[in-house]
Design a protein around this nucleic acid. Structure first.
Lengths: 233, 233
DNA sequence: TCCGTTTGTGACAGGTTCGTTACAGCGCTC
DNA sequence: GAGCGCTGTAACGAACCTGTCACAAACGGA
């Protein structure tokens, strides 16, 4: 599962650091913001997968930010978890919290924090697209995570599977190594471009016994292409 | 599963919008009403599957509406979830709530809301779940809570039973640990993902004597899959 | 042809994921 | 309260995957 980015919006420096530390240790990428304007910048720059939002902020209240985000079409999908202090017993205010996907009352443990974040992320990205890709007898089933060549099963590693899935959903189109790294490996990873070659090789090797390795073609100076145009193997 | 319609009866515009937003995102169809008379119209027009009812309303109290609905023959079936403010902890109030199928105290998170609605709907429309699941001689009887392999009884713990039942009703499909936690353990429970591995192990161990353990397959980097495709054990 | 550039290939160290076992806590029965 | 089954977590090793390198091979232009 690819790394998830969490934006932490909290004015108290010490608390923010604590949270960031816990999240990083739990394997999340973490972006911090001390106020709403910084948060807006971070949202634009880092495309967080989830926002952890203190509701008491210096400039605009966290609730205002939450409601504003909900109104913006592109940002509606980002789940929000509210941080509230126990003292804020005002019902009216608390009622508004329903705009968030979850809320956590201070004080809270690092484990609870991580658990709730995981739960919300789980719910936010439920199931991926139903996908059956086919090319001249080469079948990739995304839901069962299986690849077969004329009913013969093909074993692929995780990266090779993603690579083939990407290729099969964009046939007859050349992708540079950089594009492949971006779209198969995921946006912000630092990996040598030549690494793509190696995985192409591994994919070809796996397809070789069934004769489909020719479908993965090299375009010298440009990148690679998946081309099922030619005759059946 | 067909789309379910929820009627939200709540006078506070902001809260109502928030709720509606959350529900829509969770895949429900959503109808809104600000007062009891609007609610009655909505019930007649939209035939909601569930009513979310604030108990403090401008014209008639939510409780009155609930009791009135209960008296009407055709509407008895519609489950009702009450929304109450924390301040109203009064026993007297709680007593009135007995007409509802569940109640939620403000503040609440979207996650809690969705979880409770799902639970009530599940109870109201008991899934005509085929109580008998079969896969190449492996039989799971949901009603008698029994599992047998070729007439040989198999002892399973509660979690392993639910796990196997879930797998058998979704064969040939990969589920991530997160999805399994969500759908077998239940949405709002906070458990380490690796815990899934241990229960997979326990399930396999229980299936081992009869040779069915191979049906529970690991998909590295993705999750687990139940696959009765291969040869009989 | 030659030479520089690009790609294929095999090996490998480090890291990650998974299987497995052990164990403590909990609720239950007796 | 002891005994028991069930659950979730931790820890360890094994299997596997990954990114990088070094070198070989292929290619293309001069």
């Amino acid at each position: 599962m690819s790394e998830r980015t969490i934006l932490v919006v909290e004015d108290d420096h010490a608390i923010r650091e604590m949270i960031a530390f816990s999240l990083k240790r739990a394997g999340f990428r973490c972006v911090e913001a001390a106020d709403v304007s910084a948060a807006r910048r971070a949202i634009a720059d880092d495309h967080p997968d989830l926002i952890l939002l203190d509701w008491m902020l210096p400039d605009v209240s966290g609730i205002e930010l939450a409601r504003a985000l909900r109104r913006e079409e592109l940002l509606r999908e980002i789940p929000i978890i509210m941080l509230t202090a126990r003292a804020d017993e005002d019902d009216k205010v608390r009622g508004f919290e329903s705009g968030a996907d979850d809320y956590i009352t201070k004080p809270f443990s690092a484990r609870e924090l991580v658990a709730r974040i995981s739960a919300v992320l789980r719910r936010a990205h439920p199931e991926s697209d139903e996908g059956l890709l086919e090319a001249n007898g080469l079948v990739l089933n995304a839901t069962s995570h299986r690849v077969s060549a004329r009913d013969e099963n093909i074993e692929l590693g995780p990266t090779e599977f993603r690579l083939l899935r990407f290729f099969m959903s964009h046939p007859e189109r050349v992708f540079s190594r950089a594009q492949l790294l971006d779209r198969v490996w995921g946006g912000n990873v630092y990996v040598e471009e030549r690494t793509v070659d190696v995985h192409i090789r591994r994919l070809r090797k796996a397809l070789e016994p069934s004769g489909y390795d020719g479908y993965v073609q090299t375009v010298r100076g440009a990148g690679y292409r998946f081309s099922p145009q030619q005759d059946r193997p």
